[in-house]
Design a protein around this nucleic acid. Structure first.
Length: 678
DNA sequence: GAGCACTGC
């Protein structure tokens, strides 16, 4: 391979002050072999930039009901502020909730804080995430995922247990945090009106949309905390790059030849295939027989990678070797990789774009936002000064949007709206969103809920009894509808399995260079009736070997996803017990499973046209079967699918063969209306 | 004829 050096222009330094935005703190606790004592921890804590600000911060928080706290990397706000409030008795014997967008973060921070306080985890300090509640009535500092607090609010909209809600990482703008903004603001007002104890809100963020946060919370005061981040040189590409993948490889080899060994490189690319191919190319280049290159360990990193292989990025690099990690945006926030000296940022990300008009999801490679670019840059300066190579020009950077569009403005809202209705909020269009979703998206979601029988539109929109039951499940309403429908078909046991497996990423693992072997291994699970029954076969086989890891590996089954599916199944089963649904199995009568699926997915049907091309029943859109489907080679006449994803073509994913008559039986009014409309 | 960013309940 030809290696061409290309020039970078150094224009900026990213320092403790940040340039535009600032990177977020890493929430993963570092793997250390020696446990520090509590005294050592205290010494460490005293050095945090937040420590000298303690008095002033508490005094201000005392006076206001809501505050925005802007804290840069490593300032200690997440771990220290809850402790300050608690020690000062400001929690007034109630609980302080601190939300996080990610589970691992909630868990590891809780572990850290309980260690700092010298208490047993789950007592004064605890956490609560899906499948795991390590807290008790006596817990005063409770770390939780934003989704968990949102779920809790449907049981108690006034959040009476809490005296403080701290929404951390607010700049990430997850759907859950965005809905919580409105929920906690409303709870605060209503508690005041009812004369109940005050609910204080702290919004913690690391961004520039400070004004928007402050304005939304009735001009709440803003506190700035200084961070602790090493300076990072930012170098822009002098020319626009036409092939970012190639440019990334060139940049890596250039750094490899120029920089001392032992300084590791993190490269941001967009997806699994691209990453695997880059990894193989780099490995091929350095193993060149002429031995002109120093040894290099190249690790891929993306969410679908099995855990064992993911862990390789944390192994210390041996002397005289360079480690290169090629990652998706998973390395922006979710995992912190130690010892990164160089970041190579292609400026590209694969993003899901939702079109509310067509209801279609699209996966598209796009430019990142400025805040994302700074986040990537920040990954180079965690332990020492570093360098970030941007494979785009400064002019191109200036064209990037300031922030990533909040998730709530680019996702299907049916689940969110069902939850808001369950919270007793019926006027969704006028709900106090910080950034309102498009009205079309709200209406489309309401239409879907009406079709499912979850919502009635009389004078105002309201939940039906069925809708209330659907809201009890942590699922897409269509999947919940399938579960509730199972009692008519005596197949709840099977539906629980199918729905759980549909709730996780693919259970099939297809490694880059073993595609054929993986496909061959998969054959024994395949059902001619479609993917849902194929999934059921996999689950039965998995349970048959009691979830044996070796078996998973031999059969190219992703053990982690199977385990998650089992946990989800258990959770869903408990909800079904609560709703007194009858647990029955359909045995070999697999047709009822597909019939039952029609009750949630009757809008997602397609009919075969010619040469393997299908047209959707709902909108006559041309679609094809995804190559990962067990029906890819079969082409049945009529199918239902769980989702459409537009990439190079419009693909149907997770399909089952159905009889058109079943569709009609599942939703007669819908199909009658369609007939008249056509 | 051929493929899937990341979270979360």
């Amino acid at each position: 391979m030809l290696i061409v050096a290309f020039l970078f222009r150094e224009t900026r330094m990213m320092s403790t002050k940040g340039v535009l935005g600032s990177p977020k703190p890493a929430k993963r606790v570092k793997l250390t072999s020696v446990e520090p004592t509590r005294d050592e921890l205290l010494e460490e804590r005293k050095k945090l930039p937040i420590f000298p600000a303690k008095g002033k911060l508490l005094q201000n928080v005392q006076q206001v009901s809501t505050a925005i706290i802007i804290g840069e990397t490593g300032c200690g706000k997440t771990t220290q502020i809850p402790q300050f409030l608690y020690k000062a008795g400001m929690h007034r014997n109630h609980t302080i909730a601190i939300t996080q967008p990610r589970r691992v973060a909630a868990i590891s921070i809780a572990e850290r804080v309980s260690k700092e306080m010298g208490t047993e985890l789950g007592q004064t300090v605890g956490y609560c995430v899906r499948f795991e509640d390590v807290s008790c009535q006596a817990t005063k500092i409770r770390f939780m995922t934003d989704g968990m607090l949102l779920r809790e609010s449907t049981l108690d909209p006034l959040l009476k247990r809490y005296s403080f809600v701290i929404l951390d990482e607010a700049h990430e703008r997850t759907v859950h945090t965005d809905v919580l903004f409105g929920v906690v603001k409303g709870a605060q007002k209503r508690r005041r009106a009812k004369g109940l104890p005050q609910l204080k809100i702290l919004v913690m963020s690391a961004t520039m949309d400070v004004d928007q946060f402050s304005q939304y919370f009735d001009c709440a005061p803003v506190f700035y905390l200084e961070g602790r981040q090493y300076p990072i040189q930012v170098k822009y590409s002098v020319q626009s790059q036409s092939d970012y993948l190639f440019s990334a490889l060139v940049a890596v080899m250039q750094i490899h030849q120029e920089a001392p060994l032992g300084q590791d490189i993190l490269v941001f690319l967009t997806g699994q295939e691209e990453i695997e191919s880059a990894v193989h190319t780099l490995r091929d280049i350095v193993k060149d027989v002429t031995k002109q290159y120093a040894p290099m360990i190249v690790c891929p990193m993306y969410a679908a990678l099995p855990t064992g292989q993911q862990m390789r990025i944390f192994q210390p690099t041996p002397g005289g070797v360079r480690k290169v990690i090629v990652a998706t945006n998973i390395a922006e926030t979710s995992v912190t990789i130690p010892n990164i000296k160089f970041v190579v940022d292609t400026g590209m990300v694969k993003a899901k774009i939702f079109n509310p008009n067509s209801g279609l999801d699209m996966l598209k490679v796009c430019w990142v936002s400025k805040s994302q670019a700074w986040q990537r840059t920040g990954r180079a300066g965690r332990e020492a000064p570093g360098t970030c190579y941007r494979l785009y020009t400064e002019e191109e950077f200036e064209q990037f949007s300031t922030n990533t569009i909040p998730e709530i403005q680019r996702c299907n809202l049916s689940s969110v709206i069902l939850q808001l209705l369950a919270l007793g909020i019926s006027d969704i269009v006028h709900f106090d969103f910080m950034d309102k979703p498009r009205p079309e998206a709200i209406l489309a979601a309401l239409d879907q809920l009406v079709l499912l029988g979850a919502v009635e539109k009389q004078e105002k929109v309201q939940l039906t009894l069925l809708g209330r039951q659907l809201a009890a499940f942590p699922l897409d309403p269509r999947l919940s509808r399938v579960l509730l429908g199972a009692k008519e078909f005596d197949c709840l046991e099977e539906m629980l399995t199918v729905v759980s497996l549909l709730s996780v990423e693919s259970v099939f693992h297809t490694p880059y260079n073993k595609r054929d072997t993986a496909h061959a291994a998969r054959q024994k699970f395949i059902s001619s009736e479609g993917d849902h029954l194929t999934l059921l076969n996999v689950y039965r086989a998995y349970k048959g070997v009691k979830g044996d890891k070796q078996w998973c590996q031999e059969n190219f089954i992703n053990a982690r996803n199977m385990q998650t599916a089992s946990q989800i199944r258990k959770q869903l089963r408990e909800i079904c017990v609560h709703l007194q649904l009858p647990f029955k199995s359909c045995g070999q009568n697999t047709g009822v499973i597909r019939k039952c699926l029609c009750h949630g997915f009757f809008t997602n049907a397609a009919e075969l046209q010619h040469e393997g091309v299908y047209k959707t029943v709902a909108s006559k859109k041309t679609v094809v079967i995804h190559p990962s489907s067990s029906l890819f080679m079969r082409k049945p006449g009529c199918v239902i699918y769980n989702e459409l994803v537009q990439t190079s073509k419009c693909y149907m994913r997770n399909l089952s063969v159905v009889d058109p008559q079943w569709l009609y039986e599942a939703a007669p009014t819908y199909f009658k209306r369609k007939k008249t409309a056509n």
